[in-house]
Design a protein around this nucleic acid. Structure first.
Lengths: 219, 219
DNA sequence: CTAATAGTGTCTCTGAGACACTATCTA
DNA sequence: TAGATAGTGTCTCAGAGACACTATTAG
């Protein structure tokens, strides 16, 4: 029907939170172009898989994960993104709890590593642009949905949950107001268990009521 | 580098408001598959143009427009979208004032026509899915940005502006509250001119202060 | 004068944000 | 008992939403 010389790729911006920093998974490229440079993991879409499936497959090849949140971010279609030729990339955001993350480098990467988003190495291709866009979207989504759960283990304390927001928005939310808000939204429930994490009062563990992404005004 | 048999297309969901209904531009297909069926206008991306440019080009081929708002919506990458083969489509939303719309059918269409979104014909491909998604996004964007201006002529009355919101959200906003809100947001200015549209008090004409898309909490 | 739309102000209630102390544990 | 984090309530202010009348025109 048509002659076209465009290749379609997917890129996954994999976010996770470590201590008090938002981190992103990057790979060190093992081949030209941009050999040795750090890049967002991704690859070409196969003929017999959907674009979503391609993103899942590529994600699995880099990180051993289940229960990841994956959401299409944007399609980057500029002309000279890739020196090898015309490549259009459909970017996805993945959210994962740090505990669940178990990185192993795939065939096309020397190394896989997480980096705090405020201390990134130079990135290959237009990956810096993609990443900024991803952070924007992440903030946006945390503001009005319950996807924060995917950055947390299945059970967590209210402090953990607030930490996610503090870190992603890079500010200190007020503990009382934050808890009031969460309480009113009715999106989490107590597990009945507590956890002791030091020489102080133990914290109640909670769980999200609904795994499905719901629109809720959190911030 | 890679063998891939995927074609990349763009589709434009062109919205406009006529009287008290949200409308969308559709073409009647002149070729198989889905010959004679109505479809969202679109086409394949050329090798030497960006995906955005492809969307603009296709848009221009169907509608004689300048000053259109065009925004990438979502990339639809399912396997059997197109019976001819593997086609991934990057969908865009376009907003245009009805006055500015001057449709002419391109080569691959028998007919171009606007339809109210609540009285659509059967649509080809997965275009019904795409359209629902587009309407959702449109509502979303009107809620928190100033893009409503692109559904209006350069100058308009407050009633016109409210009409856009009434129509897109399919409800009657309160005139006083709506105007208070718009006033406080400081996004439009009086032109100083009035317009008479019948046997009643003339209405003040306004203009948006800023063409750039801005985040503002309208609804 | 009638009919039709343009244009305006007040009150109530809810939610956002500022703010400081008690509870519970370990060492 | 000192040190550390968990957990909680009140007040103020701003904004959302409900609500009804006057202004201006043509015919």
């Amino acid at each position: 029907m048509v002659k076209q010389h465009i290749l379609l790729a997917v890129d996954n911006i994999i976010f996770t939170i470590v201590k008090d920093k938002l981190h992103v998974v990057l790979i060190q490229r093992a081949a030209e172009p941009f050999i040795n440079a750090w890049a967002i993991p991704g690859g070409f879409v196969h003929d017999e898989e959907t674009v979503d499936e391609a993103a899942y497959r590529e994600l699995a090849e880099e990180t051993n994960v289940k229960n990841v949140y994956l959401e299409q971010l944007y399609t980057f279609g500029e002309l000279n993104r890739d020196p090898r030729g015309r490549v259009v990339s459909c970017a996805y955001i993945a959210l994962i709890a740090h505990k669940a993350l178990d990185l192993k480098s795939g065939s096309d990467a020397k190394e896989v590593q997480i980096f705090p988003v405020d201390k990134l190495p130079a990135l290959a291709f237009d990956h810096k642009t993609i990443l900024s866009y991803a952070i924007q979207r992440l903030r946006y989504k945390l503001e009005y949905t319950n996807v924060a759960q995917y950055l947390l283990p299945p059970t967590f304390t209210l402090t953990d949950l607030q930490q996610v927001y503090n870190v992603v928005f890079n500010k200190e939310f007020d503990t009382r107001n934050f808890r009031k808000k969460i309480d009113k939204l009715d999106i989490i429930k107590e597990t009945g268990e507590t956890i002791i994490r030091g020489a102080h009062r133990p914290a109640m563990l909670y769980r999200f009521k609904d795994k499905k992404v719901k629109i809720v005004d959190i911030i």
